[in-house]
Amino acid sequence: MTEQSDEGLTIREVRLGATREEGGTREVSYVIGGERDLPFSGDGAGRPLVALEICDDPRFWPPVVRDYVGDLANDTAEWARAAERTYGADLVRLNFTSTKQRGFDAFDAIAATTEEVLAATARPLIVEGSNEPELDSEVFRRCGEAGEGERLLLGTAEADRYRSVAAAALAYGHAVIAQSPIDVNLAKQLNILLRETGVPQDRIVIDPYAGALGYGFEYSYSVMERIRLAALSGDADLAMPMICAPTDTLSVREVREAAPADQEAMAVAWEFYTAYAAIVAGASIVCVRHPLTVERLKAALEG
């Protein structure tokens, strides 16, 4: 049932990562959520987190990032380490792009990579599993198992395929990213489905799906605002923190076709404006791919 109350709601707090005391190996864990008002307008919320996205198969990664990180792209664990230590990311989002290959069946590698990345990092980890319903349950099981106790943030549950992510999250104690296609109602529906499957509300992070700046981002922006407003005015099924991960930002025409000298600046600007706007709309975690964007965002969020 939707809890309605006149005073409005507090966004649920979701813990990411687990320290030793919490049963994991992370040096820190983060608690996101807790807002009682619009972003920047009240108290209650911590600073939004900036996640750097990396992947296990760079063939599916934007060239502008590959050029910047060089050899790191071929060593997922080192890339993850650099994300935290060199680039200053609050956390890493690991994408299993390898599952996009035709006939993928290297499930052991999924587990191994998860373990390696966890070993290479000290902060909470976001894991983006497969994009393929056929692979879902095995991929989620393997990475979920490999990260048992670490309170990963596992992605991505969608209305058509949420049961396997939910099962892995429940079995190994992780949180779940619930992604719906830019629609406040669909976001709510998915949260209800997850709830009715048994995923506790404080282990759900909403991903309203982010379009790229200039390519429909405004829809995502408004949906995030709507989700947050609905939550603050009492809709418990939407009162979860939000994550923004605009996957297409670095493949838009403006970045792809920029003069080589401008490309990096354009990539960073495009990611920065998108991520910052998402924060203004209420995102607790913004995911970017270019290491320089991490720095820019963190500077912007200080003070």
Binding site: L213, G214, E218, E254, A265, M266, W270, F272
Partner: peptide
Amino acid sequence: ASASREAALTLRQNIYTDP
């Protein structure tokens, strides 16, 4: 700088389109 300008103008266009 041109990158900032283009991103800012694009954001402004996005936000001010009729939803």
